[in-house]
Every structure is written in C-alpha cells, then in structure tokens.
Design a protein around this nucleic acid. Structure first.
Lengths: 189, 189
DNA sequence: CCAGCATGAGACATTCTTGTCTCATGTGGA
DNA sequence: TCCACATGAGACAAGAATGTCTCATGCTGG
C-alpha cells in the first residue's frame, strides 16, 4: 500500500512551518511513518522541500485561478485572492523564509508565473485608477507575500484571531492604517 | 590588540542576512579573522546570534528614541521611525526569520519593550482619530515588521530601489494600495 | 630590547544529520 | 492459502559543523 504522499507533505509543511530546522526523523515521526519510508518517498531533505515548494505553487495557482483576478474591481479580486490563499498561508510562510536559502540556485519558475499574475492584478488596478501608481506592482506583490507571512505567524502566535486573517491583510494592504474617508480630526493649534 | 567586536558583528550580520545557514568558519572569514578568534569572542553560534539580537534591539531602540514616537501626528512619527530603522533593516530581516527558531525558548524581553512602544504609537494614532481602529495595534506592529523585512529583501533582490525603501513601506503601511479617491489629502511641504 | 599576549593555523574528538543497507513482519491480492 | 511487496526498525558509514586544544608567530607596551 502506497504511503499517502499528500498526507506526508501536509504533515511536513505543518511541522516545518513551526520548526524550519526539523530533522528528517522528526518529519517522519510527525507524518506517522518511519524515516526509511520517508526517504523512499523523497530522496532527501532537498527533494522534500522541493515537493513542498511544488505543493505551495500549485495551491497558489489554484487560489489565483479561483480568485478570477481579471474579473471585477481589482480590490475585490485581491480580497478573493487573499481569502483563497489563507488556508495555505502557513506553508507559504515557511516557503517564503526558505526562499532565502535559494540564493545561488535557480528559482522555480512557478513563482515567477505567480509573481507575474499577481503583479498584473495590481497593474490592472492601477490602470483602472483604483490603485495608486506610486507603489510599484513588484513592491505590492512582495508586500502581499510579506503580509501573508506576517499574518500567518501572528495567527500562530495568537496575537491575531484566525477569523480576522483576511480582513487584516486585505484592509492593511489596500486601505492602510490611516483612517480613510472620515473627516480629518487634526487638532492644530 | 582586542578584535573589533563591532566590526565582527556587522560583518556577521551582513553575511547571515544573505545566507542564514553560514558556517562559523564563513562568518569568521567574512570578518577577516580566524575561526579560533571568532570563537574566543563568541562562545558559539548561539552566542553570536544572541549578540546580533542584542545589536538589533539596541539599534531598534535607538531608532525608536530618535523618532520621538510621542511627538506630533502619529503618521509622521511612523515615517520617522521607518526612516530611522531603514539602515538596519537587513539585520532586522535576518533576526525576524531567525525568531522562528526561538520556538520554545524565552524571547528576549527587549523585543517586548520595542513591541510595546510601537504598539503604543499605533494606539495613540487610533486614539487621536488618525488611524482606523479595526486594525489592532498588535497587527499593525507585526505588519510593520513584515513590511520592513519584505522591503529589505526586495531591495537586496533589486526589485525595489534603495532610495524608495521608506516611501514604499510607509505609504503602504499608512495609506495602502487603494487610491484615495475622496478629497485630495494635504501634504506638508 | 624583551616579555607578554592576542592572533592564525591547524589538529582532534564529538555530535548531529544524512544516505544507504539489511532483515523481519504483516497485510493485501491472486 | 500463499506469495509479493511495502513498511518499520535499526545498523552502519560518510560528511559536516562544532567545540577544544596546542603551538608558532608577530606585534606592542614596558
């Protein structure tokens, strides 16, 4: 009977998100299998991380697909995208920090595809006049990833309630901390 | 002649920011000293990271002090704070990702002090009506760290120009991506 | 000038992780 | 029932990083 590869990947993601230096043995135990079996499935730690990366890319692309980024107001599309990514945010947070280790090596082209589509969404919002143009699409894309990772970590820490995840990320990303349309209450002397 | 401890720390910070898994030998070479001397200064890798953490805390507190967070509009104080932290953002980014390794262990209380002061700044902005109140101070604080780390990484990658660092972080954090389509907001010259 | 001291270089043991192998087991399908 | 195959358990060696030690060297202050 073949090992449930998907279950192994998700266990590994959950563990590595909490402890990025976990041993292959710890990963195996977390998945409820032996180190030997884990090694039969994934040739090594590197292969495991690559598989997790592929999983993260697939989930991001699925969320991107489901969010219909070309449809309706860009702001609404961003909200749909964040809401769709939310369940996978912990894995994304792990991959985001792990990305720094890919310094010299080639970056998986899947990320480039995702980057391009997300940046295109922000660019569309700028073209339609919905988003400001002094923040570059590349930066908005990067900031989205950073906020997703921060929020995932904050939820894991308990400083943000899980149900507030999407609201916190979307509202900060789109609206910012400054109070919007209310009358300016400046108390100038 | 005693080794320039500050120089060693800064070299280590620069290297570890790029390659967080760098060996003690690599750290020593980057600082231009031998592994033996490095080990005489810092009892081990752990001690080195702790020293870097202390350095980051000191720099954050200095920036916090210089930003005068109790003075003037909260938005301006946030801008001063980000501008002051900018030079240390790479080190902060490294410590931010390294923080995840402190899972079980006690967290340096310096971070708590900084968190409290930053959160107090956001809370002050909320109390004065300058900031919206549906985003909690804890989340705004966390998001600030995340954006600083993202921006530092984006600058290192080359996708954001160094001179845009403060503007990108502050404008996204305070104003968000959405275009302020209401009244034209006043900007002091 | 000379003694002391910090440094650089390197050897060494230890520990940890990994990759590989073997073997017993037990379970499902022919 | 019986066989094939996947699994679990564990042994084993290789490699890497670390911590510790020794020794020679070169500089500096007395």
């Amino acid at each position: 009977m073949a090992v449930d590869r998907d279950h192994v990947l998700r266990s590994a993601a959950a563990l590595l998100t909490r402890k990025s230096t976990a041993t292959m043995d710890e990963v195996a135990k977390a998945a409820g299998i032996s180190r030997a079996t884990l090694h039969r499935q994934f040739a090594g730690r590197d292969a495991l991380v690559r598989a997790l990366e592929a999983l993260g890319i697939a989930e991001c692309e699925a969320a991107l697909e489901a969010a219909r980024p070309e449809e309706g107001p860009a702001g609404d599309a961003v909200r749909r995208l964040v809401a769709g990514i939310e369940p996978h945010a912990p894995l994304l947070a792990f991959l985001y920090s792990e990305n720094q280790l890919f310094e010299g090596e080639e970056r998986n082209e899947g990320w480039t595809r995702i980057d391009d589509r997300v940046a295109a969404l922000f660019r569309r919002g700028q073209a339609s006049g919905e988003f400001r143009i002094d923040l570059t699409p590349a930066w908005l894309t990067e900031a989205l990833y950073g906020l997703l990772a921060s929020a995932a970590w904050a939820v894991a820490e308990g400083s943000v309630a899980p149900k507030d995840f999407t609201h916190m990320v979307v509202e900060l990303l789109l609206g910012g901390a400054r109070r919007p349309d209310t009358a300016p209450q400046r108390k100038e002397p």
